[in-house]
Write a protein that binds this DNA or RNA. Sequence first.
DNA 1: GTGATTGCAAATCTTTTGCACTAAA
DNA 2: TTTAGTGCAAAAGATTTGCAATCAC
Lengths: 154, 154
Amino acid sequence: MTSSRPFKHAVDLLTQSGLRPTRQRVGLARLLFEAGDRHVTAEQLHAEAMADNLKVSLATIYNTLHQLTAAGLLREVVVDPSRSYFDTNNTLHHHFFHEGLGWLVDVPGSKVVVEALLQPPPGTRVTRVDVIIRLADAPEGEPEVGAGGNRRLE
Amino acid sequence: MTSSRPFKHAVDLLTQSGLRPTRQRVGLARLLFEAGDRHVTAEQLHAEAMADNLKVSLATIYNTLHQLTAAGLLREVVVDPSRSYFDTNNTLHHHFFHEGLGWLVDVPGSKVVVEALLQPPPGTRVTRVDVIIRLADAPEGEPEVGAGGNRRLE
DNA sequence: GTGATTGCAAATCTTTTGCACTAAA
DNA sequence: TTTAGTGCAAAAGATTTGCAATCAC
């Protein structure tokens, strides 16, 4: 798994972002950044913290997720209208999203080429381009295409 | 505003989708489909209906938006974690989304080429590819690029 | 200490639901 | 009639907020 960031002690990550390394934040930073690239919802992270014996309130989970996002350590991924996902991969990339199962998988930026044949509206600038490849389960005998083949999508 | 053709059109749209053309649904269909391509939130449509003297409850707005979406007449656009937008354009296209102002603008499918150099995960199939070009206000003296120029985005 | 951080509970906001009432066919 | 559709108010989730208690420095 390609870590998006050279490993750093959780305390350093926080300190360098101007966040006081409290017990809660250090614990959450560990859960988030020590296991490679991940995508979590606030609820999921909370459950994980509990399971890890880290006592944190949901309010603090939200606070911390937003602070880490503001610090550039996390990125919010908008794919589901009912909840927010936070992504620990802060390199240029896109996503596969399985609507039924609710899971996200990174797609390296190098694997997707987006060519836009137009300019952004006057007075605006592009801040980011998100490509979301929505998935569903394939039918029974799914026709398998040659692995690694390119795929033109529109 | 009292043209009978659009009225008939809305009724037909509903009927052909297996939806009983009730006063509320017809009124909403007219608001949605008589003005070209639009993007509305439930709250916006509700306000519009009120302003148009169409008495509809918010619950019915939600019901109708979802029914029209299920019927393929609307498409839900997920760009903002706090609310859903419904798009009356059901052709292949993508979006510009201004984060600060909350507006959406269609980008014709023909203006965006997405090339994915990988296959979807085993057992899945691609249902849709969404490209969201996120915008912010351009800085004061924005450097204007030649109009119509292509733009490689990643 | 003192200022930042946390937890809790209440508050918000969007969206959904239960159910009696109303209207289309 | 018969059955779908509607409105209301309550419920459900996700997220935020106010504020006193607590912790880091």
